[in-house]
């Protein structure tokens, strides 16, 4: 994945938070992690990528950020079930929006949501992952992209 392709996800992340909350996210400098490393907070929404490219895109965040984001969306139910739903929906939206650049053969799965720290999120061919740090309203989250 080159810099321009990574930028698609950065732009998608900024766009998501701006639309959802009127307050853009501050995206930090992306960095690479090794194939055995996982960056994960309490809630993680994972999208499987298939088609011409293969891999995973996941959004991971703590309950603090997710609760504030739910409130920004006008939601009053801040239960565990809704935090799971939201973390999957963010991952789904950012990945789906990437098709504007990658095309319709960038196939995305329905979200898989993991609560707690997964030991490892498997991707094909043991690719290294790009981590995009996200700061929003004093909360931290990350988007992790592992794509062929």
């Amino acid at each position: 994945m080159d810099e321009a392709q990574l930028q698609v996800f950065i732009d998608g992340t900024i766009h998501y938070f701006t639309q959802a909350s009127d307050e853009p996210a501050d995206v930090g400098t992306p960095y690479l992690i090794g194939e055995e490393q996982t960056v994960a907070d309490e809630y993680t929404g994972i999208i499987g990528i298939s088609g011409k490219r293969r891999g995973t895109v996941y959004f991971t965040a703590g309950p603090g950020l997710l609760k504030v984001l739910l409130m920004s969306l006008g939601e009053t139910d801040l239960s565990h079930e809704f935090l799971c739903d939201l973390v999957g929906e963010v991952a789904n939206t950012i990945s789906g929006n990437a098709r504007r650049s990658f095309g319709s053969d960038f196939m995305i799965s329905v979200p898989l949501v993991v609560k707690g720290q997964p030991e490892r999120i498997h991707s094909p061919n043991n690719l290294r992952s790009f981590v995009v740090p996200i700061n929003w309203r004093s909360h931290q989250a990350a988007l992790v992209i592992t794509i062929e």
């Binding site: 990945s95 789906g96 095309g103 995305i108």
Partner: peptide, 9 residues
């Protein structure tokens, strides 16, 4: 109403 933002979808 979808996140799939490519024209072909």
């Amino acid at each position: 109403v979808s996140a799939l933002s490519d024209k072909s979808t």
